[in-house]
Design a protein around this nucleic acid. Structure first.
Lengths: 194, 194
DNA sequence: CGAATGACAAAAGTCAACATTTGTTATTCG
DNA sequence: CGAATAACAAATGTTGACTTTTGTCATTCG
């Protein structure tokens, strides 16, 4: 039986597993070490703190979520359609994770509450993708807005209720889809100014 | 020395005072009763529960905040200017209270977290005022939007980051005013569709 | 009689002893 | 020598006995 070496990757895997099994409140670094058959001190050789380990797990989790979004952001085609599909995907991804991956979502929620670097990076990444879609729309004459970067940030801010985890409790409201439709109508019109 | 009778109003006054002095976590109905020189049982003659008393206090507090907003909503003049001034006032009022009335703001925050009736009524009231401004704008040919009621709701949702108490922690961010400016540009353009 | 009281039970909150977890470091092991 | 460990101090969390608070109601008082 070969002994796999203790790598950053194996620790992240075990940490994500522990986080999912026990939740962000109960998972300890001793749990992670036990799953790997090592002492908890060894984990601290690869991560400076438990917080750093949690952030790294969240980073991977967010990165996986970004994959399908990136695909839409990099498509060709009408910018308005792409932006709408991109937002739908973002909202669906957040909702799916809130329901289907509650422990890791709670973990993300906690990190988002404190202004952790990994979350800021995630938001910056989202803004960049929206900016790209809006930029394409302007290039094709489909959209028109004075400051595309500001508009991208504004689109994310304006739709925050539907994807910001701070509002997760509202996502089961019956009127939530109608509310998004109204906001979408408003901002799409705003992006089409001439 | 005349004995003032124990009325709903005197209880509300004392309750607001206690809430402000001790904060939502520490104020008890015994505190309220003591300030009035009665037993706490008497308070329960006028309010069915402590929660109801807190809601009533919050209702008054919100109603006072609405006064200046209502004035702007009922003005004449260009709808875009009025809407902008109305939003500025709403945002300023929320920020002022978050900083200057932290105990009652914390109380409001707790009630807003649970979906209390008094908060829902407050939001409905806000929507109504925005709808009025937008309606005026349409009548004057200044604005144009398919569904004014939906647009009013959308304006409030889209600007939530700047007035929803769930985001109070972000109100000290350096970029918050620029972010609002970007959202304002976007939604104003959206309301001017033709 | 109706408003207010105070004694009471149940629920919620407090606090300090105790246990676990985090993070460090001197030592062991291959 | 470098990776892992085990023993440790400090920080954090848990527990359970105790106190306060909430809400009810039979009784009192004007």
């Amino acid at each position: 039986m070969t002994e796999a070496p203790l790598t950053r990757e194996r620790i992240l895997e075990a940490a994500e597993d522990a986080l999912r099994r026990f939740g962000p409140g109960k998972a300890t670094v001793v749990d992670v070490a036990r799953a790997l058959g090592v002492s908890h001190g060894s984990v601290y050789r690869h991560f400076p703190s438990k917080a750093a380990l949690r952030e790294a797990v969240t980073g991977l989790w967010l990165a996986r979520m970004m994959d399908s979004l990136t695909a839409v952001a990099e498509e060709d085609g009408p910018a308005a359609d792409r932006l709408r599909r991109w937002l739908d995907l973002l909202i669906a991804a957040k909702r799916t994770r809130a329901c289907g991956d509650p422990e890791l979502f709670a973990n993300y929620l906690q990190l988002a509450a404190g202004a952790r670097a990994v979350v800021a990076a995630h938001v910056a990444h989202l803004v960049q993708q929206v900016a790209r879609i809006i930029g394409d729309g302007i290039a094709q004459g489909e959209l028109s807005t004075p400051d595309p970067a500001a508009a991208a940030r504004a689109v994310l801010d304006a739709t925050g209720r539907f994807h910001n985890p701070a509002h997760a409790a509202e996502w089961t409201d019956p009127g939530i889809d109608a509310a998004f439709e109204a906001v979408w109508t408003l901002i799409l019109a705003g992006l089409r100014t001439r």
